[in-house]
Every structure is written in C-alpha cells, then in structure tokens.
Design a protein around this nucleic acid. Sequence first.
DNA 1: TTGTAAGCGTTATCAT
DNA 2: ATGATAACGCTTACAA
Lengths: 344, 344
Amino acid sequence: MKLGQATIKDIARELNVSSSTVSRALKDYPGISDETKRKVKEMAEKLNYRPNAVALSLRKSKSFTVGVIIPEVVHFFFSTVISGIEDFAYKNGYNVILCQTNEKLEREKSSLETLLSNQIDGLLVSYSKETTDFSHFSKLMEQDFPIVFFDRRPYLENTINVTVNDFNGAYNATKHLILQGYKKILHLAGPPNLAISVKRKEGYLSALQEAGIPVLEELIVTCPEGDEWESFELIKKLFQNPLTRADAIFAHHDIVASGAMMAVKSLGLRIPDDVGIVGFSNWQFSSMIDPPLSSVLQPGFQVGERAIEILLEIIDKKPEDRALSTNIELDTELIIRKSSQRIP
Amino acid sequence: MKLGQATIKDIARELNVSSSTVSRALKDYPGISDETKRKVKEMAEKLNYRPNAVALSLRKSKSFTVGVIIPEVVHFFFSTVISGIEDFAYKNGYNVILCQTNEKLEREKSSLETLLSNQIDGLLVSYSKETTDFSHFSKLMEQDFPIVFFDRRPYLENTINVTVNDFNGAYNATKHLILQGYKKILHLAGPPNLAISVKRKEGYLSALQEAGIPVLEELIVTCPEGDEWESFELIKKLFQNPLTRADAIFAHHDIVASGAMMAVKSLGLRIPDDVGIVGFSNWQFSSMIDPPLSSVLQPGFQVGERAIEILLEIIDKKPEDRALSTNIELDTELIIRKSSQRIP
DNA sequence: TTGTAAGCGTTATCAT
DNA sequence: ATGATAACGCTTACAA
C-alpha cells in the first residue's frame, strides 16, 4: 500500500476547510459553492488525490468486489468464463478477486473464508470435483449472501445457476453421429459426481434411444482423469476387443477426444471413414488437429457475463425481492468438422 | 457484504469484556488469562466470527492483496502465469485482484487506478500492446510502489522484470532447424513494439549469423495480428514466390506456426521433409496437431511464481533495502517434435 | 490481566 | 454553505 498517498484530510488542511466539505465538493453535492468545488478539485488534482476504496468499503459496508472460485485457471473454458466475468465487472465498476481451487475441496473452503473476510459483495462459484458436501455454500445462502453458480450446478435447493445446456449439446453431437451413419457409438464420460458429466451422458443416451439404437453399458466408459493419455490407453484397449470396438466416439471433452483420436489413428483406422469422433468444448486446438475435430462449442464468455450480470442484480436487490431459484442454460453450438463427417 | 456478521464488539458484549481483550485473546497475546482466551475463542466460534479484512487493511495500511494487470486471460501462456501467481499468493496469504486490459492502454490505466484505490500492496504487470508511454508506471515507481513486470519488459530504467529468455529460445529453435539441414529459414515475427518480438528476432538472427547463413530481409515477416488466418495467408503468398519460398519457418508463436503449417500443407508440401517448422510457447495443442509441432516451451507457471515471489519480498522490504533493478530470465526448453525433425 | 481511547479514511447526521 | 462529530471494525499505546 502506498504510503504518503493524499487523503481528504490533506486537501482539507491545505484549503483550511473541513473534511466534510471536501468530501461533498468532490462528489458535487448540492449546497457547496462552485468556488469551493473548484478549489477542492484543483487541490485534489494537485495532490494526486485518489479515494481510498478500503475506507469507503468499511464505511459503506460495500466493497464493489466479487469473488470468483474456479477449479483451474489454465483451462480454455474456465479462462474464457473468467474473461467474461472480468469484462462485465470492469464495465460495472466491480473488482474481481480470483481464487483457483485446483479441484481441491480444502482450498475451496479456505478461499471462501478469505473472500468473505475481504467483504466481497457476492460470489461466483464453479465448485471443485472433490466437493460433494455443499454446506459451506448453503450456510451462506441461508444468510442471503449472493451466490451464483456457473457451469457446475450444486446439488442444493434454490440456487442460482448459469450453465451450458450440456444435455442438448450431447444430444446434438450424438444425433449428428447417428445421422452420419455411425451405428456403434462409444461414450467417453466424465466424473459422475459432476452434473455436467451426467447431463452429457443423458444427452447421449437420449439420442440413442430416440434413434432406436440399443444402449450398451460396455460402450459407456468413464475417464476420471480426463487427460489425453488416459483416453489414449482406454480406447486402444477397448478397440482391440471386438465387443467394444465402436465405429464412433462421443467424448465428454476435447482433450479426451484428442487422446482417443490418437489411439484410433495408431490402430491404423481412418477418421472419419472408419471411426467418427466428436468432442466437447471446442478448445482452440480442435480446429488445428488432424483431422479437425468436431466439437460442441460452449459459450464460456457468455456464461461468465450472464453469471456476473445476475450476481450484480441480486446484490442490488433486497433478499425478499430476489428470485429464489434461477437456472439459465445457455445454448451450445455443434461445430461440425472433418472428424465426424463422412457423408458430404 | 454480509450483514449481521459478528464483530469483535459482539463477542465483547456477550462476555462483558472490552474489545481489546477480545482482539488480544484471539491472537494469543501474552498477558491474557487462559480462561479468557478460551471463553473468547468459544464465543467467536459460536457467533461464527470472521475477522474483517477491510477494517484490518484500513487500520494497518496493508491489504495483503496484489493486483495483476494482464493483456488477456484467455491465452495459454498468460493463464499459466496467472495460475502460478494465484498459487503462490494463496500459499502466502495474499489475494489476487485480476484485471485484463484486452491490450488496451486506456483500460490498463483505469485498471491501475482502481487497483491503487483498493490499496493493493503491490502490482504485477504485463503491459498492453498499445502501451508505449510508461509514465503511469514510472510515476508509481518514483514513489517506491512495488511493481514487478513479467513477460513484457518496459522501456524504463530500474525496473524489476521476470521474463522468459526469448533470445535463447529463438536462438535454440533456429539453430535446431539449421542442424536439421534447413538452409532458407523464414521468420514470422511478432509486433515490433514488444520486446519479446525483438528478442526472438535477435535470437533468430544470431543463430543464422553464427552458422554463416546470410540474412535475407524478405524472409523476416511481421504478423501484427498473430492469428492463424493471417499467417496462413502470408505463408501461402510468400511460398508462391520462389524468392520467398523457404524450406523452414521459425514462428514467434504456435498459433502463427499452426497457420503456417496449414498453408504449407495446402500447397502440397510435406512437413518436415520439404518444410521444417518450429513455433514458440508450446501451447497445449502443439502436441496434438499433425505433424506434432516443435515448439519453445515457456515456463509460464514459474514466471508467475517468481514474479510474485519477488513482489512479496519487495513489499516486505523498506524502499532503501530493495535492489534497484532486477532481471530474472527463465530458461525456455526446446520441445522437438516431428514438424522439424527430418534427420532421425 | 484488562480497559480506555485514538486513529486508519470516509461519509452521514446534526448543527451552525 | 460549511463544520463538528460519530461511526464502520480493528489494533495498540497507555493506563489502571
């Protein structure tokens, strides 16, 4: 913190007026002479006065700061969400304190404590993979503390959520594979404790059922880690067994899809002719791999924007005027590239 | 900000002691009876007491908060740096307020003001592409405000910088291409107002000169935008002219390299046989494109860690005990993949 | 061992 | 049109 930063008192002393006059003059309060206003502003300029937001925050019990709790910063989707949050916050005069949990519950709880200590006005959360007990959040909500959950929806009543329509995204992706003539579609699923994993799986199932394709349990494979090596190994093994040798893969994530793609190629199979692949998230690299990977685009920036937009709305409302529960689901967009297109 | 949050006064009232006693008891000050300490802590627990960091900050003129000004959050290198910063900050009890400039000078200045208003203890900056006048930073430095610049080094005297050794990275990449037998190496350069662009170009030049390869001005091409389409178009055009048809490309960035790769492939040339390519930054996708792209790995996480480590050191030192100028250059690592390897 | 009071920077309330 | 004062939550001389 800068020492020797000029305060209202300094301005007051220089001009032989009281601090209240200075305070009022700086904010163009009525009932202050233009002459005084001019002098005060001039002196403020001269002394390089900068209001102390901390003092203001203490005085007004309002910090114009929101906390963001996010699993990982180095993640295309999440960094995009952060970007949306930051942009909207900036435009509305709010600060963003960022905490990443690295998917650890302990860190989530301790970051939450710090944020609250710092008197944040509201909180945006995407909880960690380890989080199954949400009481640290529900306790706050009982006290009407403004919280908006994004991407990962907690298993709690009356929450405000901004998510991506994972079900539809998965449904569309799977249906697209079916329309391309693929018959035996394997699903590389995410960790089952995340609602997004469940939704994506449900979308996949729904598309199969609608098309009258029997659901085979052995074709639904969970990737707990979610890195490319894991799915590489999984697919290599699965494809060596005729029973689990699929002709298409719907992966819950592009990284996983990319590992699967490498495995398929390493087995001498052609994409999309022998095996069709669709991923999820449309990471930057998806268009650059060979063949370019079809993927479900998640509107990360909009998720961030909407989440903080709603949060700021709530912050400004009295608890009794707030909606109890809100669920915004933003639409995905299926980006069809070569990896899943064998019909021109 | 939570209303009805218990304060020290509440605890004091409940126990019929003074707030100072409570304050001292909570911090295990000597000279407070164990009995009182116990009772105070119990009551604090019961009332769900949480220290008010804002009040503390005001009182102590120290916020345990640092500001981070960064061009873009959605950027593999920068998000990695942020991750390093956040992790180290967390471990040391500091908060991170994040501001992205979207490469705009105006936003950089205004974010700086907000951060200072919020009484940050120090600042980590990677300035915007638009920034050519650094006076908003130098003014602060004159007042001994702790600032550490990362990645992008300002054109100022006596600054503290944590950067990547771009010169060496570029030198090694170019030398590698030379050792692979490539003779006519084109450089896709970054915006010349960024020191990193200049350094990378210098590394390229130095490797050529050392090998006695003549430097051809027409083989040094700037990519102002830095997206894949730009470099795609550039390379396509350049390679259609025999004069600028190179047999290798050193790109200042993986995105640019990837665009170049697509252009080369679209011309029916083989990589690495006809054209060798090396990028910079080792983005996540680099290993997943076809052929896998050789790239210069930048230790982003370490850049973030070192930058905030130094910042926190400075914050705790009196201005007169601080080093005037520090330049940490972290080593890059050349990741050799198929795109540049035609000699086994 | 504990209490009193001042102060961090700001503003709202009540005077003048 | 301006000033004095108290208060936001906390710490810390100084007193007791």
